[in-house]
Design a protein around this nucleic acid. Structure first.
Length: 152
DNA sequence: GCCAACGTTGGC
DNA sequence: GCCAACGTTGGC
């Protein structure tokens, strides 16, 4: 990893796992990521304590609904070894895991979510990864300046 | 290693 | 439900 982004954004479909679920659980293993770029961010980039924007996708009002943080180092995603899991990967072995994850901890819920619509309107954010055309990455980095703009 | 086919994501 | 974008797979 060339640069060292320290701010992140993770996407989740709220019907599968929402910011309210994270609030209830306090923390959760960010399991099931099966994209190499997203994996590399978690495995090689994320450090304990890094702030994470929690984004709700595929829902009536997509946007950032809360703040979380990285609370563990990267470790092998156990679901890749579980043949009964939909995330099972027969090519992975315990000696040579393919997929990694970190634990994500709850920080706060944003009472007025920062909607995708609002993000698109802010000229300062047009370059952020989330808004780049066709970006479907479920874990991505966020510039410090972008994070501060969104928190204000 | 190329590239067409296929699958998934996610906004609308 | 549609469709554009794009990552992954697999035949050659």
């Amino acid at each position: 990893m060339k640069s060292e982004p320290r701010y992140w954004l993770v996407k989740s479909e709220p019907s599968a796992y929402s910011i309210d679920d994270l609030k209830k659980d306090k923390k959760t293993p960010w399991t099931g990521i099966r994209n190499y770029t997203a994996r590399n961010f978690m495995r090689d980039g994320m450090q304990i304590g890094d702030p994470v924007l929690f984004y709700h996708s595929s829902c009536p009002v997509p946007g950032v609904y809360g703040i979380a943080k990285v609370v563990s180092k990267a470790y092998a995603d156990p679901t890749q070894f579980d043949s009964s899991s939909s995330y099972y990967d027969p090519k992975a072995t315990k000696g040579k895991p393919i997929w990694y994850l970190v634990d994500i901890g709850f920080v706060e819920k944003i009472h007025e979510p920062i909607t995708l619509e609002a993000l698109k309107k802010d000229k300062r954010l047009t370059k952020m990864a989330l808004l780049q055309r066709g970006n479907r990455l479920s874990v991505m980095s966020v510039e410090e300046s972008e994070f501060k703009i969104m928190c204000s």
